[in-house]
Design a protein around this nucleic acid. Structure first.
Lengths: 347, 347
DNA sequence: CTGTTAGCGCTTTCAC
DNA sequence: GTGAAAGCGCTAACAG
């Protein structure tokens, strides 16, 4: 039914192998036969069957990606970057979502492996032993994204969630925030939000801030952020900063403050993590931690491509960094001794 | 290197065909040989090669999907539903994004077709002639989603963007809004936002509202919505309703109103389209048009599955409907004669 | 019920 | 430089 390589070969009076060589841009084909073959391909409207090629060449040109949720902006953007990059290099994406469950992830990995992808993209650095074993023994390049680890399955492209969280608390402490509460995701726990929470707590420990009854569990949603503010109000009016493991929670918190007439950052500072588009748009704009997610996806693709080209594994461990973006949702006064505070005294 | 069906057959002392039958759940295998084969599969850790199966069976078990942008919540959610459904039925997704360009879409379609997917998912109902031709002649089921059309490539699962937009304007007119402006997406034009814009304009025409200088072009972003409000302020203080083709624009508009101290809906009503999570969270909550996007994705998968099972094409044209969700961003008084207005007069 | 035999459409030695 | 041939791993008749 469909036109095959044999049809082209027949029409061009060459062997199937030659057509294949033309198709794959082999150097060892004379200019004239190449032109001849190309013409016949054109004429017949021939389109290669990549499934057959995949079987014969043991390269399918597919990359498998698993993310927790396709609908969650953060991961979708990374996939967008990955997809972009792969497309530019003739690779295509097959995608699955595991709903924040490592067991689901393992199931999907097993399933995807049967389709012989050339490489694998995983979200986060925490996977079941099964996942690690299957992937390692498959021998294909694997990149874990959105976090860092010393013990990657193969490669890792991400940023230090723990360190970012720790740094932002230190910064906001320097800005004068003293009484801190942490809003942390209750459902969908994962290595990234866990690292953020731990980073927040570590900073508080560094600073000698007592966090007893200051860890607020909520869902990762706008409603969760609202609930966190309600909890803060219940706990103590002294709390002057709510650090959230995601922007979604933080935005929900700010909106709830608007409703309750709580001044932000006057009465309560709010800070998030992710720098979603809404973070900059909201009133007041949200102090948050940004990472170039699309870029991270692209970089992950790049690392995979290098590995496919034979590069060693660990060459592909890249820290894409993060960026603390201070906005109006937290205090901006410099309270450090020789700075703003002093200035005020002078005037 | 890898263990194949032949290895299993040898160990189980059966033919390769029998192993294949067991794998595919054929009825015509005795219970004992089945058990025997299963045991050997287990023992050898055999995993079928789906690429080979795809070549032999001419079914790859893959569905190709193209959306404008993976990072845009709306489409990502539909894909989430589609992916969910397909996974439950042993099908996997390969995905590409075309950046709102029909030419890119055509290119990706051509590319994906070479990988022999069993079915195709497209966003919207507006495609190049090439796309339509390639897909039609490929003979595989195709579903177009997120809009409706009388002339689908094959099947369509969506809702009537035009009608929804028209209805909401009529409703808000009944609520007392009279002086209407439309904020429409400037970049990324597509059949869905175009239909919405036309629906808004049609309703205004129905109602005899003069829309000269009332069509505001902006980018589909929070900043675009803010710019639209600035434009409204510039145009006329009489404008009392800004209807937007997307929630993103509408939310940007509301946030800008907050900044400018414009009372919503007192001075200016705002209404959106999509019912994104942020719509319900913002202050005031946004009146918008909702559709179950995840459900739509699932339904699209269902239609595809039916077609794969041999169902006729047009059986798969389904209108998933929409839902006008009135919230505090628009007026709620009933101004229609026999309703609230009359009641007030009586009292 | 089950073994055998052809391919599916392409790539890749291996000679010429 | 190029043709011929041997698979890649699996499914799908076709006999028995």
């Amino acid at each position: 039914m469909s036109v095959t390589i044999a049809d082209v070969a027949k029409l061009a009076n060459v062997g199937a192998g030659t057509v294949s060589r033309v198709l794959n841009g082999s150097k060892s084909v004379s200019e004239e036969t190449r032109a001849q073959v190309l013409a016949c391909i054109q004429q017949l409207g021939y389109r290669p069957n990549l499934v057959a090629r995949g079987l014969a060449a043991k390269r399918t040109g597919m990359v498998a990606a698993i993310i927790p949720s396709i609908g969650y902006t953060q991961h979708a953007e990374a996939i967008q970057g990955l997809s972009d990059f792969l497309h530019e290099h003739g690779l295509r994406l097959m995608i699955g979502h595991c709903g924040y469950s490592a067991e689901n992830e393992a199931r999907i990995v097993s399933d995807f492996l049967e389709r012989r992808p050339d490489a694998f993209y995983l979200t986060g650095t925490s996977h079941t032993a099964d996942t690690r074993r299957m992937l390692r023994q498959s021998g294909i390049p694997v990149v874990e994204a959105a976090n860092l680890t010393d013990d990657p399955i193969d490669c890792v492209v991400g940023y230090d969630n723990f360190d970012a969280a720790r740094q932002v608390v230190h910064l906001l402490h320097a800005r004068g925030h003293r009484n801190i509460a942490v809003a942390t995701s209750l459902h969908d726990p994962n290595d990234r939000t866990a690292a953020r929470r731990d980073g927040y707590l570590a900073a508080c420990a560094d600073l000698g801030i007592d966090m007893t009854e200051r860890l607020i569990a909520c869902t990762n949603s706008f409603a969760g952020g609202a609930a966190a503010v309600a909890q803060v109000a219940r706990l103590s009016p002294a709390i002057d900063l709510l650090v959230c493991v995601t922007d979604v929670i933080a935005v929900g918190a700010i909106l709830e403050c608007q409703r309750r007439g709580i001044a932000v950052p006057g009465q309560l500072g709010v800070c998030g993590f992710d720098d979603l588009p809404i973070a900059a748009a909201i009133n007041p704009a949200l102090t948050t931690i940004g990472v170039d997610r699309v870029g991270m996806g692209r970089t992950a693709g790049q690392v995979l491509l290098q590995r496919l080209g034979g590069a060693a594994a660990m060459s592909g461990s890249v820290d894409v960094g993060f960026d603390i973006r201070e906005h109006a949702s937290t205090r901006s006064e410099i309270s450090a001794p020789g700075e703003g505070a002093t200035k005020e005294l002078r005037e």
